[in-house]
Design a protein around this nucleic acid. Structure first.
Lengths: 203, 203
DNA sequence: GCAACAACTTGACAGTGTCAAATTATAAGG
DNA sequence: CCTTATAATTTGACACTGTCAAGTTGTTGC
């Protein structure tokens, strides 16, 4: 009667996390379109309607999976920060690299996270995880913030827009044929062209 | 027997464009999720399977509609250019405003255009229309290009990433609760923080 | 041991995209 | 003018989706 044994009971033990794990796997190997309630249920060896008791519909499951995505994104950025030392510039380019690496390695997840098919306000976990990622970005941008101008948050939105746009454009195939000139541009060339606060001391 | 009269014949005359028009209307008023083959067919007063003969499946119809989107986007940017005069800075901020205005006014279309649910390479019209939009961007960025560095296209990708990312983040609701600090940031504050070529003469 | 409750299953329904086959309108040829 | 061929459209079917209602079964509290 061990709760984690293989007894084919109705109760799964931790079906919620099992469904999320199944969804993560499907997302990674079969893409966003294959992420369906029924596929997750089948993959977790439960009936097709089981997910409804743990998530309110498909958007609910998507939100829970996206929350894991933001968690992973945060990890990617934090890992870069750890090996970046104290230089604000290195730290900034570090989280950008982490952001782009995450998008590149998990295109379907990245697509899901910003697909606006679910409501961030309805899932407190998703809200917390995305806020955490935003926090890493915000902290790293803080040294470059222009104080007292009433434009707080400007630097982080500048950086976020830049990496996010770059990641999106790379994932879409709207850059023309592969090996088009636009494809060869590297993100590393962007940061030196930003007038960040610390630049004035360096220059 | 006038071909454009209301005779309920099998032949529609210009069903292809009628389906695209129906799709544009659905996209604008009911959102991306409501854009289905069957809905377009019903809206055009034809049977549910009629679209298959003019588009190869849903991705084909989406591609045709997205092509119209790129056309409109080009128009938005060109209109701003016409009223911007000769100053490269004004022209650049003009197309950015046009880009953001388009995304704001047509959120579902913008979402569709970059949703990667269809293949740009498979629709020559879509390819041409998106290339045209890219051309406007590229031309406007040309005065700021750094020559002879082997980094051609860097400026346009910098600008495109920035506007595209900003538009995407605004459309997602992942910026936290409305009236969060990140929501109050205006794009106009970004351009002065870019080290563009002409800046050095001004400064 | 029994009752209440939660988890899960089963079955059904309205949608969706897509295919094959049948129907009909237009166009071409004799 | 009639016949034939071809293209456009319809009809019907299939598998798949999310979602709901009702039934079943395991767990829990008393």
């Amino acid at each position: 009667m061990a709760p984690n044994s293989k007894n084919k009971t109705h109760h799964h033990g931790d079906l919620r996390n099992a469904l999320i794990a199944a969804g993560l796997d499907i997302l990674k190997h079969k893409g966003l379109a294959a992420l369906t309630l029924r596929a997750c249920a089948t993959s977790a060896n439960v009936s097709h309607a089981a997910p409804a008791h743990h998530f309110q519909g498909l958007p609910g499951l998507q939100a829970a999976i996206a929350a894991r995505g933001f968690q992973e994104l945060t990890d990617h950025m934090r890992r870069e920060l750890d090996s970046a030392g104290d230089d604000p510039h290195l730290r900034l380019s570090g989280i950008c690299e982490g952001y782009l690496e995450f998008a590149n390695q998990n295109p379907a997840m990245f697509q899901l996270m910003f697909s606006s098919t679910f409501d961030f306000q309805l899932d407190s976990d998703l809200l917390a995880r995305s806020a955490e990622a935003y926090g890493v970005l915000s902290d790293t941008c803080a040294p470059f913030e222009i104080p007292g101008t009433g434009k707080e948050g400007g630097t982080e939105m500048l950086i976020w827009s830049l990496v996010h746009g770059f990641a999106n454009l790379k994932l879409s195939d709207c850059l023309g044929p592969k090996d088009a000139p636009a494809t060869r541009v590297a993100f590393a060339d962007f940061l030196p062209r930003l007038q960040l606060r610390a630049d004035r001391k360096d220059a």
